[in-house]
């Protein structure tokens, strides 16, 4: 996990042991708590969520800045709130 990205995020949410629908529900609720332009970093532990969550937040109008696989079963999704 890069420290640079850690610093850039205004908020971080650890959903490594979560499954759907909690991964998207919690990501969506986190984003709702934030202000426009702020960056959320989401840690996900399975490939379905790491694929579905970015796609869904993108379709909600937020900007997906990156999806990085940092370990075999660890994805970091960075999103800027719309």
């Amino acid at each position: 996990m890069s420290d640079q990205k850690e610093q850039k995020a205004d908020r971080t949410v650890d959903l490594l042991s979560e499954v759907c629908p909690y991964t998207f529900v919690k990501s969506k609720l986190e984003l709702e708590q934030m202000e426009s332009g702020q960056v959320l970093q989401i840690h996900l532990g399975n490939s379905e969520s790491a694929s579905n969550v970015p796609r869904s937040v993108d379709l909600e109008g937020h900007e997906v800045l990156s999806v990085d696989q940092t370990e075999p079963s660890h994805w970091v999704v960075t999103v800027r709130r719309a």
Binding site: P21, F24, E48, N52, R55, S56, L59, E60
Partner: peptide
């Protein structure tokens, strides 16, 4: 996920 998406997600 497929069924839920009609309710929750746009994907």
């Amino acid at each position: 996920t497929a069924f839920r998406s009609f309710y929750l997600e746009k994907d």
